[in-house]
Amino acid sequence: MKKFFSISFVLLLALSGILAGCGSDEAGGEAGKKIKIVAAHNQTSPDNPYQTGLLEFKEVAESKSNGDIEVEVHAGTIGTEESELVEKLKLGAADVVLVSPGFMTQTGIKEIDLLAMPYLFDNYEHWEKTVDGEVGEEMAKLINEKSNNDFKLIGYWSAGVRHYYGKKPLEKMEDMKGLTFRTQTSGVVADYWKKVGAIPTSIAWGELYQALQQNVVDSSENSYPYFVQQNHHKTDNGKYITETAHDYTTRFLLVNGKKFDSYSKEQQDIIIEAAEASVKAEREAVYAQEDEYKEKAIDDGAKVNEIDREPFIKLAEPLQEKAAKDMGAEDLLEKIRNLK
């Protein structure tokens, strides 16, 4: 049974040192001054778990502040690409965004790509122990310090467990050889799928339905709530789903660190409380929707099969070790493995 671990430990430890001396009304903001927060994610479906999480963030922030904090939620309306959202956050055009480790590595914080490694996690419990514990705390500090306070992590969200879907089912790992596969085209993730034999291909999320439909790409990967809500399973190149379970995904809920430090201590505390509530709401939505949207895909005619994951896992392990060594994160990898 999926279980929630308290994120207070991570957030308080990661932020306590950062907030000290910069969160008082004298040093960092006027008490009672109204602020507006632009919060954004890249998904356009109103049923997406991201939307559930940010709406919970809005509800808690606005109610706890008695209206002194206004939150404006954007569902893909100021960017459907995570790179756009990261740039807007850095420039101050957005205040809270949701991004993946892969896009964060483009900012030069290479260690966080560790969390995107295929087959790093065994199950949701393993993932939660990782992000809600010591490893999550260390990642939060790395993001803040290496971004020079451009980014401050205030919560770990999930985007579900990712599976292959494409124009044919996978019966064995070798069936991926030569398939164009929509995934990251650089970094640890791309290296892994190249080793499998696939051809990593870059397609914008908003253009993927058409790309699958028009045979531009043979296959893709994502979790049920995300690709089923976009009807990818209704295309010829998306109707076969093989449950590879290669990634229990991590998403970073980030604020603009410099702007955060300008808020009053009371406002900072409310934002952290709203972030904690959003984490719980978003994860609950993901976990519930995975079963719901798997059934919907089957009802719509998609074909689902399981596969022996052991060859995939064995291929991943040495690549994890090499990548961790290259990014100076060997100790973090060991800590994650010890939590299994």
Rank of each mutant, 00 (worst) to 15 (best):
residue 274 A to W: 03
residue 264 S to C: 08
residue 188 V to M: 13
residue 167 K to F: 10
residue 316 A to V: 12
residue 27 A to R: 11
residue 25 D to V: 15
residue 14 A to V: 09
residue 161 V to L: 05
residue 316 A to Y: 08
residue 151 F to G: 03
residue 211 A to E: 06
residue 173 M to A: 09
residue 3 K to I: 14
residue 289 Q to C: 03
residue 73 V to C: 05
residue 34 K to V: 09
residue 44 T to N: 06
residue 268 Q to S: 01
residue 95 D to K: 06
residue 257 G to A: 12
residue 102 G to V: 08
residue 186 S to W: 10
residue 312 F to C: 04
residue 324 A to F: 02
residue 213 Q to E: 07
residue 148 N to D: 14
residue 117 M to G: 09
residue 338 N to E: 05
residue 206 G to L: 01
residue 325 K to N: 09
residue 180 T to I: 06
residue 309 R to I: 10
residue 54 L to E: 01
residue 321 E to L: 09
residue 123 N to I: 11
residue 110 K to M: 07
residue 47 D to R: 14
residue 135 V to P: 01
residue 187 G to N: 05
residue 9 F to M: 08
residue 23 G to D: 02
residue 6 S to V: 09
residue 232 H to C: 11
residue 144 N to D: 05
residue 113 D to M: 11
residue 45 S to P: 04
residue 207 E to G: 07
residue 88 K to D: 02
residue 290 E to K: 10
residue 288 A to W: 08
residue 168 K to G: 08
residue 218 D to Q: 04
residue 241 I to D: 01
residue 235 T to I: 10
residue 283 R to I: 15
residue 62 E to L: 06
residue 128 E to P: 01
residue 110 K to L: 04
residue 115 L to P: 00
residue 6 S to T: 14
residue 93 A to C: 02
residue 113 D to P: 00
residue 300 D to W: 07
residue 269 D to P: 00
residue 59 E to Y: 07
residue 175 D to I: 10
residue 27 A to K: 13
residue 153 L to Q: 01
residue 185 T to M: 07
residue 225 P to Y: 11
residue 58 K to Q: 13
residue 8 S to T: 13
residue 78 I to C: 01
residue 156 Y to R: 07
residue 110 K to A: 12
residue 82 E to R: 14
residue 304 V to T: 04
residue 27 A to Q: 05
residue 261 D to C: 14
residue 161 V to H: 05
residue 246 H to L: 05
residue 141 K to V: 14
residue 205 W to Y: 09
residue 244 T to R: 02
residue 213 Q to H: 07
residue 292 E to M: 11
residue 23 G to F: 02
residue 191 D to Q: 08
residue 287 Y to E: 11
residue 209 Y to S: 09
residue 288 A to P: 06
residue 6 S to Y: 08
residue 11 L to P: 00
residue 229 Q to N: 06
residue 127 W to V: 01
residue 126 H to T: 05
residue 28 G to K: 12
residue 157 W to T: 10
residue 168 K to N: 06
residue 9 F to N: 02
residue 260 F to E: 05
residue 130 T to R: 11
residue 173 M to C: 02
residue 190 A to M: 02
residue 187 G to D: 03
residue 123 N to M: 06
residue 203 I to T: 10
residue 237 N to I: 12
residue 23 G to Y: 02
residue 41 H to S: 04
residue 151 F to T: 04
residue 22 C to Q: 02
residue 148 N to F: 12
